[in-house]
């Protein structure tokens, strides 16, 4: 799926670029994006490694397994095949809580940890397990308590009520979450 998407984005971009007479911009974008990618990786490396370090402490001290018991019934519904794997469930919980609190930088290392733990239980190592798909879907529609960046942008452009969208953001996230979970549960039967 990602193969087609990647091919599509690049081919469509190049073809449209040629038709539009934007070919210089597209060529420059290719070169600059490579540079930006590496700059971006360097900029996240520090914080990512810091969090994986902190997380290692949390794992050795048993904090992650404690976390995994917090919402056991919900986890049993969402991840029926992996609910026994306390490390995986703990990492999933920590990733979702970090997202909820709006700690994007901390959420990613927790998410990667969750994926690695889920991979250990995965029977077919080169394709996603059902639990991994569910985890990715939960990340897509992740609810955020305070969408801080968005509120900052709104007040920067002169909104009279920058926080006024919070309720609608919560409702829409919840709808998207429910639809995503149903879609994942349904699609797993098809493929």
């Amino acid at each position: 799926m990602l193969n087609y998407l990647w091919l599509g984005l690049i081919s469509f971009g190049i073809i449209i670029g040629i038709i539009n007479g934007n070919i210089d911009t597209v060529t420059n974008a290719t070169v600059n994006s490579c540079e930006n990618a590496i700059k971006f990786i360097i900029s996240i490396t520090g914080i990512m490694c810091f969090w994986t370090g902190i997380m290692e402490i949390a794992r050795k001290s048993g904090m992650i397994s404690t976390f995994s018991n917090l919402l056991k019934p919900v986890m049993r519904f969402l991840f029926p095949d992996n609910v026994h794997n306390e490390q995986a469930m703990g990492a999933v919980m920590m990733n979702l809580s970090a997202n909820f609190l709006g700690l994007g930088n901390a959420a990613t290392p927790f998410g990667i940890e969750a994926m690695k733990e889920l991979q250990k239980d995965n029977k077919n190592k080169d394709s996603l397990s059902d639990s991994m798909c569910m985890f990715l879907v939960l990340n897509t529609a992740c609810m955020q308590m305070v969408p801080a960046t968005l509120i900052a942008v709104r007040s920067a452009v002169g909104s009279e009520n920058p926080t006024g969208i919070m309720l609608s953001v919560w409702i829409v996230s919840l709808i998207s979450l429910v639809v995503g979970v149903i879609a994942a549960k349904f699609l797993r039967k098809l493929c």
């Binding site: 990667i112 994942a184 098809l190």
Partner: peptide
């Protein structure tokens, strides 16, 4: 991309369609 890359998985099965439906 990040999560699949981290575990070296290539087949994403229905994860992307389900995420697109949620979006």
């Amino acid at each position: 991309t990040i999560y699949l890359g981290a575990v070296g998985i290539k087949k994403s099965r229905y994860a992307l369609p389900a995420a697109i439906i949620a979006t």
